[in-house]
Amino acid sequence: MPKKLKASEMNKCIGCFTCMNICSIVNKQNHSLSKSAIKVRTSGGMTGRFVAVVCIACKDPACMEACPSGALEKLPGGGVILKPEKCIGCRKCEKACIMQAVFFDEETNTPIICRHCGSCARFCPHQCLNMMEVSAE
């Protein structure tokens, strides 16, 4: 069965941002938080709770539906993968995601969407992020 990233235990989060750092390093060979497909945020500064904004692996992805050029392809078990060569940079996917989990890379003019590789979960020091098995349909 495919595995998908779930930010299931954010109550344990210490806000170290290692997940974002790792995502940028592994997927974009970059140190910028802006390149990460997962965003850990607080509401109300450091005194607020941490939340993770990241693709929740929709079975029926609105981002893919919104894409006019077929640059987003469905993954087994949910979520999408970007084919950058087909992307026109229209940002319709970004607007379509009601979880606000599609980010945009101004430098490459392409969306940043989690591909559920699990690198962030592997480096999360407090197991806030986990890879969970889901059905393939």
């Binding site: 210490i14 806000g15 170290c16 941002f17 290692t18 750092n21 450091m46 020091p125 407090h126």
Partner: peptide, 13 residues
């Protein structure tokens, strides 16, 4: 609660 500085996986705050 415990928190971390950005880039620290320890979280001593």
């Amino acid at each position: 609660r415990k928190l971390a500085c950005t880039g620290c996986p320890v979280g001593c705050i």
